[in-house]
Design a binder for these strands. Structure first.
Lengths: 246, 246
DNA sequence: CCCTTAATAAATCATACTTAAAATTGCTGA
DNA sequence: TCAGCAATTTTAAGTATGATTTATTAAGGG
């Protein structure tokens, strides 16, 4: 399974080099030699150069004449690029950036929910309704379906961002989804789904349907605090080195 | 002056095509013919293909064999890419996305300020201090310097994001800066700098220095409300068609 | 110390070849 | 006659390679 959308040799090379840069395997200021890479991956210079241009577009490398193309420092990277996030996950020593992502989520999502409650249209309601139904279905004790649960959970939150009619929030939700999805793969959907998770989602939904911004916001905030607590315990279990940077 | 960081024929082509897609001049699903573009810009196929790959990396185009490379719909674009924002500004009929950006700013920046107040290190303090000094200097009635004012204003807010030690917030601040910078060019720094602007910035700064998260947050929120009010009046004056989508 | 020149690697160009997928054609059988 | 299916053609992306240009650093000479 390809987790990246890019096709062919080019896509694989973008992916491979991207991972090397964000994982720190290729250190900042280290030169990426075109011919050498072409040799290693058995592709032509054309393909290598295209890949480097794409990475440059995401801030991961820079190139100056005479010197060469070199990796940049973290602060130059576009962390809000879904690819960058995905690559970061794949070979990381340190998952503290997950905490960073969660922190931003906690800043945005309750207010996004408030906005959703005042701007949602019928189409948004039906998306959310479908997601909630699927979620309840997946959480049924007789037939637990972790994959469906995760998927519908993400769909619900995504629908909220979409309801805000704010392009930036929608783009952010993609970054978030990428992060959460891979986190779930990492912690293997511990799926200690507390009985009230679905209920709490439904209550958020109902407040949005009823166009009650303040109520929706408060309920979402409550829900996220629970989710964060679950995530922390899961992370500690699976990955003892995941420590918050002071 | 080049407002884009990309160099040479390649960079210019990425820019030109990016603007066309983002502005809607090239509509979703419309095919971008490689040979035709090469002819129009008098560059080789290689350069065109590299440019299209970069755009694909930002979600602006997709390519399938046999069919060609075509523009995608807005929802596929990565709005959190500084280039995308910049291009959006350059040929837009509608500046409502500025309101979207401001909305997200209002969601993030007060809390970022709160975090900054508890996580800032000495280096952050000196960055902010320098920015505040420059700002006060620029706002002096004897020698008004709009450009310096804008620059130091941005530097101050950027230093706050940096103090949070959260990579995502830092990347977001780049997007924000791009937006605010070009907005200021658009409204030509109306510079009706209310006397208390510098003072309010200084008060935020002092709360951060004193490590008073709650106070810092409240003061920043207050400051942003003023800024938003100024921006709205400026936008209405210069651009009557800037209407908020209902 | 400045100016010229050489060296270097990115940037560009041009062209040929390969691959995958869609569209067309053509065959078959009901 | 025509619907359905398979083989063929066509199209444009994708890949490869060698030659050329350009910009910048570094070395060398005045």
């Amino acid at each position: 399974m390809r987790t990246y959308p890019l096709k062919g040799a080019h896509g694989e090379l973008v992916h491979a080099l991207g991972v090397r840069v964000v994982s720190g395997e290729i250190e900042p200021m280290q030169i990426l030699n075109v011919d050498q890479i072409g040799l290693e991956f058995a592709v032509s210079r054309t393909v290598v150069r295209e890949a480097l241009k794409v990475l440059a577009g995401k801030g991961l490398v820079e190139s100056v004449k005479k010197l060469g193309t070199y990796a940049t420092t973290e602060s130059a990277w576009n962390w809000l690029d879904p690819d960058v996030i995905r690559w970061k996950f794949e070979n990381s020593q340190n998952y503290s950036f997950l905490d960073d992502l969660g922190e931003v989520r906690l800043m945005l999502e309750p207010i996004a929910t408030k906005l959703a409650a005042s701007r949602r249209i019928e189409e948004d309601i039906s998306s959310m309704g479908d997601a909630i139904l699927a979620m309840a279905q997946a959480a049924r004790q007789e037939s637990l379906d972790p994959e469906l649960f995760t998927k519908s959970d993400l769909a619900f939150h995504s629908a909220i961002y979409k309801s805000t009619k704010n392009q930036f929030l929608l783009s952010f939700s993609k970054v978030m989804q990428t992060g959460l999805l891979i986190r779930d793969q990492l912690v293997h959907t511990s799926f200690n789904v507390r009985g009230d998770v679905v209920k709490k989602h439904r209550q958020v939904f109902e407040a949005i349907v009823a166009r009650e911004p303040e109520v929706a916001e408060a309920r979402m905030r409550d829900l996220l605090v629970d989710a964060a607590a679950d995530a922390v315990s899961a992370t500690i279990v699976k990955s003892p080195l995941a420590k918050r940077k002071k």
